[in-house]
Amino acid sequence: MTEVVSSHPVAAEQRRARAPSDTGPRASGRLADVAARGRGLIVPAVLLVIWEAVVRGGLVPANLLPPPSALVATVRELLADGELQGHMLVSSLRVLAGFSIGAALGVAAGAVVGLSAKAEALIGPTFQGLRAIPSLAWVPLLLLWLGIDETPKIVLIAIGAFFPVYAGLVSGIHNVDRKLVELGQVYGLKGGVLIRRIFLPAALPSLFVGLRTGLSLAWMFLVAAELIAATKGLGYLLSDGRETGRADEVIVAILALALLGKLSDSGLAWLERRLLRWRDVYKTIGA
């Protein structure tokens, strides 16, 4: 009784004492968050200013290193006639197609090799051997076999995406906790159901590592493919800029590639966060 009575004012006092500081840290936390993001912009902003100054001051020839202001003009010009959008669209579609095919095959092959010791003994070493080939070495062969239109580009991108996805899933499956598999077995799960309900969810984090690496390789191989033979796409813009001596076009193409690469990776990262909410991982501050 007395405890209840005496605890009341104390609790109220604690509430009162906490109330102002409660919003305090949170509000300043948001501010700190914005500030932290802002801090990341300081270095690029300073670099841009130096860049502009250096070129205007005549220390570097503007035709080799166009200043940021000239790049803005180039972007405007390329956007106005729809050229830049066209290149970006073509490149994105190629990556989408190549990555989808490569990732799908990577998941299929990874699942088979990861889940079946027989399959692993049979085809694991072959994949390891193929993986050792620097993927660009495929290019001449692909051109010989498949001509110079879309097919060899998409195949090359698919090859780039395939191996990380394959390797990610295989290692994910190999690292599934035996205890969780046992639990599935106690509940009578076998074959496909055991795979779907235990192996795949458990291997998902590692699969996502593979998918994200595969996606970044897909962009890399896109550039390689388009540099070699293309009449459209950002890789074409790169080689066209070089041939016509337009450094501004080259830099804009690079920036567009960075933008698309970052956007597509953010998409995957978003999906990863959603699907792997359950994961218990160490979070760095602000991550």
Binding site: K179, L180, Y187, L276, D280
Partner: peptide, 20 residues
């Protein structure tokens, strides 16, 4: 044998599936 409907098993560690 595994999976007799009539047997319930609680392991020494919880073994909850982390994604559920």
């Amino acid at each position: 044998r595994l999976h007799l409907d009539e047997v319930g098993l609680v392991f020494q560690e919880p073994r909850l599936l982390p994604w559920l």
